[in-house]
Amino acid sequence: MGTVMHKMMNGEIILRVEDIHKCYGDIEVLKGVSFDVRRGETKVFIGPSGTGKSTLLRCINQLTIPDSGCIWLNDEEVIYGGPRINQLRQKIGMVFQNFNLFDHLTAVANVEIALIRVKGMSKADARKKALEELKQVGLLDKANAYPAELSGGQAQRLSIARALAMDPEVILFDEPTSSLDPELTREVLEVMKRLARAGMTMLVVTHEMGFALSVANEILFMEHGTIVEKGSPSDIQTSPAFARTRMFLGTFQDD
C-alpha cells in the first residue's frame, strides 16, 4: 500500500476527464463528470445499475462520443474523428464484461493481431511479445486454444493480455468479473491486483468490494450520471461524509 500511495502522490496526471455530458434521447446519462488520473493509480467506480459507469468508460476512448466535455491523455485531446484517434485508443486499453475475444483466432493470435495490423510489428516480433503477455497472465499453455475452448476466467485473462500487449498508458475495466463464477473471479482479480502493484494505471468499474478496498487508490461512487462521493478506501469505510456510499455498499453486500 505504501508504495502505491507514494507513486500516486508523485505520479503526474496522465488522463484528464473534463465535464463529460452524454444524453441518450431525453435521458441525460452523464451529467458533467470530471476527474484526473495519475500514473500508476487505480480508481474504482461503483454505483447502482444504469448510472452511466459503462458509458463513462466508453467515452474515455471515444467508443461512445460524448455530447460535450473533453478527454486529455498526456496533454493530447482524445477526440472522435481526430487524426490520431486510433493511436490514442492503442494507449487506452479496455477489458469488457463479456471478454469480446476474437472467436476465430487462437489465444496467441488474439494478442498478436493488433500488434501486426495496428503497430505494424513483424509476425515474429508479435509472436514473441504475445507469448510474453500470455505468460504474464498464466496462459502460456493455452496459446493455441480458441476462445470457445477457454473457461471464463481464462478468457478474461486473455482479454487482459490482449490489452496489455499494446503497452497502454491506462486500462479501463468494465465489470471484468461480473459474468464469472466466484472461483474464476478470483483468478482474474489476482491478475488485476498484480497489474496494479506493478504500476499499471487502471480505471475499474466493479462490484467487487474486496478488490476495491484493497487495491483502489480512490473509490468513486456514481449515481444518476454524476460522481456523488469519492475518497480513499479508508475514508469511505470510516468517514461520516460517505454515508451514501456506505449505504449502497450495505445494500449491495446484503444481496
Binding site: 486510433n86 492503442q90 486499453g93 469480446n100 495496428v118 482479454s159 490482449r162
Partner: peptide, 19 residues
C-alpha cells in the same frame, strides 16, 4: 452473427473500422 462486442474490442485496440 458476429457479436458486436468484437468490433468494439477491435476499435479499442486502435484498429480502424476497415481493419
Amino acid at each position: 452473427s458476429v457479436s458486436s462486442g468484437q468490433m468494439t474490442a477491435a476499435l479499442s485496440l486502435g484498429m480502424s473500422r476497415v481493419q
